[in-house]
Computed example of a mutant assay.
Amino acid sequence: MEDDGRAAEPEKRGLRRELLASRRESTPDERARASAALTAHALALPELAGARTVAAYVSVGTEPATTALLEALRLRGTRVLLPALLPDDDLDWGAYTGPGSLAAVRHGGRMELSEPTGARLGPDAVVSADVVLLPGLAVDARGMRLGRGGGSYDRVLARLEHAGARTALVVLLYDTEVVARVPAEAHDRPVHAVVTPSGVRRFARP
């Protein structure tokens, strides 16, 4: 059952501040080791092994690094889609064909993002993915994910639900970001698994 939406958003903001501060306190070496372990666990996922198309993302800042994972998937022959942020915060998609297929894009005063340089495939392209790898800041025992608050991936999840897609939803996090409870609102949707440096945890799939 969802929490009261009026109460959830202030709770989310406070939890985001705590989690982002914790990430900033970690060292580059700690993050590199964690990201390497996380990548190994992710590549062993049966869902990724059997996927023809994976929608992923390019990590930024102190997020668990995804660059090695993206390249490993590409070398396997997996079609990898990466997002491009639209002015309304929705996501368009383009194909990842190697490190040279990315360009740095700054959206106003926000952080710089690496986005695909090739043809745009449209926001609905994500519906073709067998697996969607999601960024986040936390996940709880129900599989409820805490994002950064921009709403981009809420739209992705709503689009998948509307299409009736049976896409596997996997969030990539550090170990300490699997928490007891994430405040949830009516529009929030659970993920199916979380990958951390320690391994994989799965959640009941409806």
Rank of each mutant, 00 (worst) to 15 (best):
S128Y: 01
V171Y: 04
A163E: 10
G151K: 05
A34I: 07
R110M: 14
V182Y: 07
A49M: 13
L133E: 08
A204V: 15
D188V: 06
H162T: 14
R120E: 02
D140K: 09
G149P: 00
P116A: 02
R202P: 10
A104M: 05
V80I: 06
D4P: 04
A163M: 06
M144V: 15
A21K: 08
M111N: 02
S35E: 02
G143P: 06
V60T: 12
D130A: 11
A125D: 03
T67M: 11
P190F: 10
R155Y: 00
D4E: 10
G118A: 11
T196E: 08
R13C: 00
A163C: 02
L19V: 06
R16G: 00
S152F: 02
D29R: 12
T97P: 03
T62G: 00
G150W: 00
R201V: 15
S114T: 07
H192P: 06
L133A: 09
P87I: 02
A204S: 13
R110Y: 14
L173M: 08
E185V: 14
G143M: 07
H187W: 15
E9R: 14
A72E: 13
A21V: 02
E18N: 02
S114Q: 15
M111R: 12
T39E: 13
G98M: 03
V58D: 01
T196P: 10
V191T: 05
Y153F: 15
L45N: 04
M1A: 12
G77H: 09
L19I: 15
V200W: 01
H41T: 01
V131L: 13
V127S: 06
V80P: 03
L160E: 03
P83Q: 09
